[in-house]
């Protein structure tokens, strides 16, 4: 049982790293908390659902389609909202409220157009077989999700450290003002980074059926809160740190479910508060942020 819990926790945790990473990227670049993050995950899930049921498109192919869709969506959202927001007195706080409004609008539009039903892409999409590690059997869909998550993390890493745009993104994350002075087109790079954040959220949504059950319009809020916990556990503003946060979350949940099930959803919050208070920079972060 112990072994099974550890292995399941790692796979589940990598998936939750994927759930949180987009939120963290956007926070890192824009210093704004995307309260609609969970709703973009929901949009990804609904996109995958419709592609699958209308055209029989496999979720793996849905990734490519969602990249295109959310790239444009992200750039549009960025230019509509962010430049105006940045001129205000307190963009950090006001963005909180703005994205909350956005999340309400997204949820409402989905309900008005598709209704409130739960929807699923069947887990049999990837076959009914199971695979085993060290004598523990897991559904094959878990293996696929794990591989996708790892590939996404590699892609994000490659973007940050091996592309021009990635360098610029990191420069903005270090200091927006200095980047402006050094001639980086901050708005263009940020808009692109914002899109990537949404794309990452949508990919998490595409695979949500296999890890967190059916999708429904109001699933977003809960996912946003969990994503918060994860990115704080890792390191706020450091996307790669999210992987650590996700792993801790996944393992913690699985262990709690095994040994103390009724308390299992308390744990992430207690962890979050403890880390905030005693190691506010996150487990692998560097800069201390306290007032």
């Amino acid at each position: 049982m112990f072994e099974y819990t550890v292995l399941a926790g790692i796979m589940y945790g990598l998936y939750f790293g994927l759930v949180g990473i987009g939120l963290n990227l956007i926070f890192g670049v824009m210093r704004m908390i995307n309260l609609a993050h969970g709703d973009f995950i929901m949009l990804g899930a609904f996109l995958a659902y419709w592609l699958f049921h209308l055209f029989g498109i496999n979720p793996l192919i849905a990734i490519a389609i969602s990249c295109v869709v959310f790239l444009f969506l992200g750039i549009a959202f960025y230019y509509i909202f962010v430049p105006r927001l940045l001129q205000s007195k307190d963009p950090e706080m006001l963005s909180f409220i703005l994205f909350f409004g956005l999340s309400q609008v997204i949820e409402a539009i989905i309900i008005l157009s598709f209704g409130n039903n739960q929807r699923s892409v069947p887990s049999s999409t990837f076959g009914h077989s199971t695979f085993s590690i060290l004598g523990n059997r897991f559904p094959i869909s878990w293996l696929i999700v794990t591989i996708v998550a790892i590939l996404v993390f590699i892609a994000v890493y490659w973007y940050f450290y091996h592309t021009k745009l990635g360098y610029a993104t990191r420069a903005i994350m270090a200091s927006r003002d200095e980047s402006l002075v050094s001639g980086i087109n901050v708005n263009r790079v940020s808009a692109f980074a914002f899109s990537i954040g949404l794309i990452l959220a949508s990919i998490a949504g595409i695979f949500s059926f296999f890890m967190i059950g059916a999708a429904y319009p109001s699933m977003g809020t809960n996912l946003t809160v969990i994503s918060f916990a994860i990115i704080v556990l890792g390191a706020l503003g450091n996307p790669m740190g999210t992987i650590i946060g996700g792993l801790i979350y996944g393992l913690a949940i699985m262990f709690m479910q095994t040994y103390l099930s009724s308390w299992s959803n308390l744990l992430p919050y207690l962890l979050l508060i403890a880390i905030m208070l005693f190691k506010p920079e996150g487990l692998i972060g560097k800069t201390v942020r306290s007032a």
Binding site: F228, W263, L266, P280, R289
Partner: peptide, 30 residues
């Protein structure tokens, strides 16, 4: 009170987590 050490969004998130933690404690069947 120790949460006041944190600033900006950090405080907001930690406070959010605290309220959720309190909720799950109160609602716990044990």
């Amino acid at each position: 009170m120790p949460l006041l050490k944190l600033s900006g969004a950090y405080f907001a998130i930690a406070n959010l987590a605290a309220s959720q933690a309190l909720y799950y404690i109160v609602a716990n069947p044990n």
